[in-house]
Every structure is written in C-alpha cells, then in structure tokens.
Write a protein that binds this DNA or RNA. Structure first.
Lengths: 235, 235
DNA sequence: TCCATTGAAAGTGTCGACACTTTTATGCGA
DNA sequence: TCGCATAAAAGTGTCGACACTTTCAATGGA
C-alpha cells in the first residue's frame, strides 16, 4: 500500500507537508467528518504545531478540493453529494480509459508480470472469502494505481492519484460502499490485463471504460436504494 | 475575457488569494521566466506583503503544478519540456472530448446561441486579418472555455479551467506558438458547435478530439522544426 | 594556482503576537 | 417573554522575529 506518489513521511520534509498528509488521510478516512469545520487553533494544538504551517497545509487541501474555505469564515470539509460522486466516475471513465490504452503501449514486461501476480493474489483472496476485508479497503485501488502508473503520463498520474482517487476513496467511506461485485470486478480486471499484455491499447481502453461504467452503475443502484429506504440498516 | 472560474479580485478576499492570482498570471504570461527561482523576501517586498500570505499563495501554485518546491531550497517556476506539453494535449483530447459530449447533451439553447455568436465574431476577425492578434491571444481559449462550462460537470471544469488551461497557456507563451491554422481551427470549431446544436454528443466528442489532435500535431511539427533549426528567427 | 575550510550572508521554516471579523452571550427595553 | 442592541469571546488574516539550513566568499594551506 501507499506505493503511489504520496507525501513521503521523510524527516527532511516540512511540517506543513507532513500535516497535509495526515489531514488528508484523516479527511479521506472519515475521521474528520464531511461538513465539519476545521478550527485552526484546535488543529494546530492537536498536531502540536503553529498556525503557520497548518494554514499552508489547508491551502493545499483547498487546492485538492478536500476542504472548502471562505474568507473570514474558516474551512470546512467538503460535503458529499451523490451527484459529485457520479461526476468523478464520468471523468475516471475517460481518464482511466486513456491510461489503460497508454499502459498497453508503454508498460514494461516486468510491470505487466507484477500486475498479473497482483490479480493472482486477488483471485486467491476471493476464493478464501477474504474479499470482503480486502476489496472493501484498497485492493481495487491498487490495481487501478498500477495501470495509471503504467501510462507513463505524469500529468495523468497526478490528476488521478493525487486528486481523484482521494476523493473517490472519501466518497466510498462516506457511503459505506462495500463492493458486492468483487468477483465481477476481478473478471473485468483480468480482461483489462489480458488486453494490456497483448499490447492491444484499443481493447484495453474499451475494457477499462466498461469496468468503470459498471462500477458507476453499481454505485447508482446503491444510491437509489439508499434514498428510497432512507437509511435502513440492511444488516 | 476572464469569464471562467478565476480568483475574483474582490476586496473581501484575502491577500494570499489575490497574490496567488497575480503570481499565476505573471508565471503563465512569462513575466516570471520558467526555471527562475522565486525568492520569498523579494516577492513579498514586490507585492508589499508579508511572507505568511505569500507562502500560502506559493502552496497553491505548487498544487497547481506551476512551481516546484523543495524543502529548504525554495521554489522555482517549472521548466517547460516539450514532452510535458504533449502530455497535456493527450489529456485534453480525452477530457475535452468528454466535455463536448456532455455539452451536446446539457448545454442550454441560449448558451449554444452565444457560442454561435462567438464563432461569427471569430469569422469576422479572421476575414479582417485580425486573427493574428486574436488567435495568438485568448480567442481560441474562449471557445474551449465555453464548451467545458457547458458540460456542467464541476470537477471536469475545475481540472481543465483551473489547471490544464493555465499550463497550456504558459507553454504556448514559452514556445511562442502563434496559431498558423486559425482558419482550419475555426472550421473545426464550427463543426463542433454544429454537432452540439444538433444534440449529437457522439459526433461532438469525435470532432473535438479530432480538433485537439490536429492542434497537437501542429505543435509537434513546430517543435520538430524548432529543434532542428535551433532557434532560427523565422521572421 | 588550486582546493579545502571557515565564516558570514542570505533564505527558508516556524513561531508568537496583534488587528480585524464573525459569532456568541449578555442585558436592556417593549 | 420576545426582540434588539451591545459587548465579550472566539477565530481568521497578517505581520515581524528567531532558529536552522543553504549558499557564497574570503582566507589559509598544499
């Protein structure tokens, strides 16, 4: 995990950088609830720092669209609407489709082999019924990260890994999206990797777009039932 | 001009916000040359502010990928490689294609009429040979802005208008890209608008992708001749 | 003459303090 | 009791100052 372009917890980095990473993680995981106000004195005290670096970190969170800030009123964690979640899926479909095509053209043979090994691991975990814990967490993301990295397009990697994925993860935590389609998703992942291994960029893009569209439709279904049943605990 | 989601020069905004906008403009227009170091004391003195707000502005510039910052070494304006410029075109092709499709589905009739009026204006300017000054500046961008706004996807608007367009503009200034294909571009713009007016999303996406691909190829050609002739002044 | 060392100068990272704005609480009048 | 005005409290925006790091220059030795 954390194999992507994240803020390194290096000791040489600044306080603002480190606290940015911590705050982002706290927001994405829901430890700081959506819509809640972030008080500068309170946060500075919690992390044992001054308000200067904290404000720098807040600026970066603002740029990352994780907090909304209004002058003299302070910053709040963004509120999560289902429309915005679907907006992200629409963009991911276009961008990750592109990433899959580029990956098919440029990914190294070694990276493809690693990808296949990752899928093998997923397959085993699903067979052992561990998929709940795994796919609920970061398993699916790992796969997507690698494809995007394989595209070799630095700007594309930045947009997806530094911005959209954190938002997607946040929304998933918020709505409690436990993937109930792990087996289907794995099958789709396999088709994508096969296309990449065959260096068939066109097919890889098609399959990736289809995969994300299916994922979006799954979310749409859940959102629909969520709103009709009005927070019924489906246990 | 400046009709997009920019930093409002409102008096109620903070110093950091205003100086962020000013710095971004200065960087994009080349007034602060690429690769040059940005000294905090010097910049703070130039804008007559303290280092606190300036550092907040720098953080936002960092998030916008306009400056590179390394701990204890300071910030530099990003250096411009032709590879990165082409990377942006690849992403724009995917993202603006998507925007055109969404715009065809969702744009209001009034907005489409405005778009047609804009094209009419472009046509007149090209006929009067004003196209050099116009297309060299922001005329082309105006068109693209409107399409993206018409998509209605807030996240998409943010990625393109807040990040990629500024970068594209910067690279254009850097390489002195005077569009020598204004007439071709206008023709392509007309095809896109026609498709949108017909509510043909599929065609609008196809035409937009083709338009940006043509634009990218044009840049590629110029870059190729640029590197072979080694800065020959083609006057 | 060239290189290494050392000191100063400049620059970045961080902090505490103050001014102004917003919010909350208090008290007065109807 | 309710509503409004006023004042106090909290919070944000900004600044200047200090510590540490990096850079540069001068000095001394080989």
């Amino acid at each position: 995990m954390e194999a992507h372009a994240d803020v390194q917890p290096d000791e040489t980095s600044t306080i603002a950088d480190r606290v940015f990473g911590k705050l982002r993680q706290a927001i994405v995981e829901g430890n700081i609830p959506p819509g809640s106000k972030i008080s500068e004195p309170e946060m500075a005290a919690r992390y044992g720092i001054s308000r200067g670096p904290l404000r720098e970190a807040m600026r970066r969170l603002e740029s990352a669209n994780l907090v909304e800030r209004r002058p003299n009123l302070g910053a709040r964690v963004i509120t999560l609407s289902s429309e915005q979640l679907l907006e992200i899926y629409v963009i991911r479909e276009a961008l990750e489709g592109l990433a899959a095509r580029l990956a098919a053209e440029r990914m190294s043979a070694a990276a493809i082999a690693d990808l296949k090994a990752l899928l093998e691991q997923h397959r085993a975990e699903i067979a052992r019924e561990y998929w709940q814990a795994y796919f609920q967490k970061e398993g699916d993301m790992d796969f997507h990260y690698r494809i995007v990295q394989g595209s070799g397009n630095q700007r594309l990697i930045g947009i997806l890994c530094d911005d959209l994925y954190h938002l997607a993860r946040m929304y998933r935590c918020k709505f409690g999206m436990v993937s109930n389609r792990a087996r289907d998703a794995l099958k789709e992942h396999e088709l994508i990797v096969d296309a990449i291994a065959e260096r068939d960029g066109e097919l890889a893009e098609l399959m990736m777009r289809r995969h994300i569209r299916a994922s979006r439709r799954n979310v749409e279904r859940r959102l629909a039932t969520e709103t009709t049943t009005q927070h019924r605990t489906d246990s």
